[in-house]
Design a protein around this nucleic acid. Structure first.
Lengths: 135, 135
DNA sequence: TTAAAACTATATAGTCACTATAAGGTCAAT
DNA sequence: ATTGACCTTATAGTGACTATATAGTTTTAA
């Protein structure tokens, strides 16, 4: 199949497929005489794998690493699990940071109502003074 | 004061100060005869404001907007509060998305232990099959 | 006094994972 | 013959910096 069909099946843009190819995430496809790329089901599976990884917010570098593991099927999978553990930690710190941020924003928002002039705006004053950490 | 001193006081890089200037977030400073930028306390305050906004994860565009409001001190501050409300919503959706992601990652991780071969790795299998949504 | 270190200036490229645009070649149908 | 849908490559843009290159200036030490 050609790139358009693969893109439709995978639900992504043709540009993105070429981009993944350039990034070394997709094996180089054969070409027709006119230069068009020709894909098979293996490419579709690879692409699905990449997309699943991206949904899990794994980086392209991490995906490349996972693919290297897959090419060496008799190694122990310790490193894969470790990568996932680390990624989970990463996501958890992001959540914690955002929750802290949310608290700050909410308490900052509580410093003002809508009926003031800019000059007297509690939010702007709070930002200026940098007291957005008042628990 | 020169850019290095301002950077030290503000706790940011000189490059970032020049970058903010180019982005229209800092007023153009006077120059010495040799071309060096000369800053005053107003610049320091502006820079602090920007940094506080960035800590709150407001975008440079939002910061520019807030600065425009500050230049019009007798307007009502409704728009400022609205911006903050929307930003809080934005942060909350990020948190929700990450929490969902975390659940998927944790359940995926539960599909494997460390003592398998890559071939039998539950994590890799889970990603390939795309079943990372099995709550 | 001179040389090195520390500072300043501009311009440009890199980060990440795409996305958009430009300029052109190929193919099937009308 | 031409339209339209597809394909090709190359290049630039996104956001908020960060890094590098190259050069000029000032300060400090020998």
């Amino acid at each position: 199949m050609r790139i358009g069909q693969l893109a439709q099946i995978a639900g992504i843009d043709t540009q993105t497929i070429r981009f993944y190819e350039k990034q070394g995430l997709l094996p180089l496809p054969d070409r027709q005489q006119n230069g068009y790329r020709i894909y098979n089901e293996k490419h579709g599976e690879r692409l699905a794998f990449i997309r699943h990884c991206r949904i899990l917010d794994l980086s392209l570098t991490e995906i490349r690493e996972l693919q290297r593991y897959q090419d060496d099927p008799h190694q122990p999978c310790t490193a894969v699990n470790a990568m996932l553990d680390e990624h989970i930690s990463h996501v958890q710190s992001q959540i914690t940071a955002l929750q802290t941020l949310e608290k700050h924003l909410v308490s900052l928002r509580a410093c003002c109502n809508d009926d003031r002039e800019i000059e007297a705006c509690g939010v702007l004053a709070g930002i200026s003074e940098g007291n957005m950490y008042s628990q």
